[in-house]
Simulated scan of single mutants.
Amino acid sequence: MFYTDNKLQYPVRVDAPNPLFARALQQAIGGVEGEIRVAMQYFFQACGARGNPKFRDLLMNTAAEELGHIEMLATAVALNLEGAPLSLQEQMAKDAAIGAVMGGINLKNLLSSGLSAMPVDSDGVPFDMSHIYASGNIAADMTANIAAESTGRTLAVRLYNMTDDTGMRDMLQYLIARDTMHQNQWLAALEELGGFAAFPIPNSHPQADEKTEFSYAYLGFQADGSAPVPGRWSDGPSIDGKGKFTAGVLEPSAQVPNLGKAKPNSGAQIEQT
């Protein structure tokens, strides 16, 4: 169950409304790096979390926080759209308005939501949930969450560098700080699960049953058959501590793919059957 007290998680202030920046902020709401993505990712991970209930609590708590971030950003989008032209014809003589409408403002914010935020990215593309990763494996989910918060923090930093608005910069510094915490909390959760020793994920599959000669081999696929460029990943103990990195060139197998003839009535050409 969720509750609301009708108050923003952190104050949102826009000193100089900017319709172009409103469009940029939409990426932080409905983009693949945005708050809808992480809110839904943590929510569905929590709903499917089995085992120690503290991980479910961690995920659901953070999902609730991310819903608050959506509210903050939606408020910021609406405030940045204050003063945006409602009629193109009335504004044709004003260069600033033409620049805002033709060169930046997301017309969906005008035409579909009346100068309000929408669950879309900066190009007006709706978020479709295709980037929600909830595997049912807690270690895999924590790893995905680290990446999600890393890309989210990168986006917030880019937005911060795009604006000189004092209010917007203050809000973004708050969001950047929360992304710092979330990266660290997912890393801490992964550490409780064994850290690097949790890999390979899932750890429930017996490694002895896999093709172990390929488990820690860095393979090169250069056309001239040369060895791949060396790195930490090609020599020394593996990161999970369960093997030793090697490097080599993969030799193709003798098998040539041959699917045989097409079945009759399959829609193929006569020459295929």
Rank of each mutant, 00 (worst) to 15 (best):
Y3D: 00
D5I: 09
N6L: 12
K7Y: 04
K7D: 03
L8T: 01
P11F: 14
V12T: 03
N18R: 07
L20G: 12
F21K: 05
R23C: 03
L25H: 12
L25D: 02
Q26R: 00
Q27M: 08
I36Q: 03
R37Y: 06
V38Q: 05
F44H: 13
C47Q: 13
C47W: 13
R50G: 13
N52S: 14
K54D: 15
F55N: 11
L58K: 06
L59G: 01
L59H: 04
M60C: 09
M60G: 01
N61T: 15
A63W: 03
A63Q: 08
I70K: 07
M72Q: 06
A74F: 02
A78C: 11
A78Q: 14
N80K: 15
Q91H: 10
Q91R: 02
Q91Y: 04
M92Q: 11
A93D: 01
K94I: 14
A96E: 15
A96N: 09
A97T: 06
V101R: 05
G103L: 03
G104Y: 06
I105D: 00
L110T: 08
S112E: 07
S112A: 14
L115D: 01
P119K: 01
V125F: 01
M129T: 11
A134H: 02
S135Q: 00
G136P: 01
I138F: 03
A140K: 07
S150K: 09
G152N: 03
R153V: 10
R158M: 08
L159Q: 01
N161H: 13
D164M: 14
T166W: 06
T166F: 05
D170W: 04
M171R: 02
L172A: 13
L172G: 07
Y174F: 10
Y174P: 07
Y174H: 15
R178Q: 12
R178C: 09
L187H: 05
L187G: 02
L187R: 12
A188Q: 12
F196L: 13
A197I: 11
A197H: 11
A198T: 11
A198V: 03
F199V: 09
F199M: 12
N203Q: 10
S204G: 13
D209M: 12
D209W: 06
E210G: 07
T212H: 14
E213I: 07
Y216T: 08
A217P: 00
Y218G: 14
Q222N: 15
A223G: 06
G225A: 03
S226N: 12
S226Y: 08
W233L: 05
P237Q: 14
I239Q: 07
T246Y: 05
A247N: 08
A247T: 06
P252S: 06
A254I: 06
V256E: 15
P257A: 11
N258Q: 10
K261L: 08
A268I: 04
A268H: 11
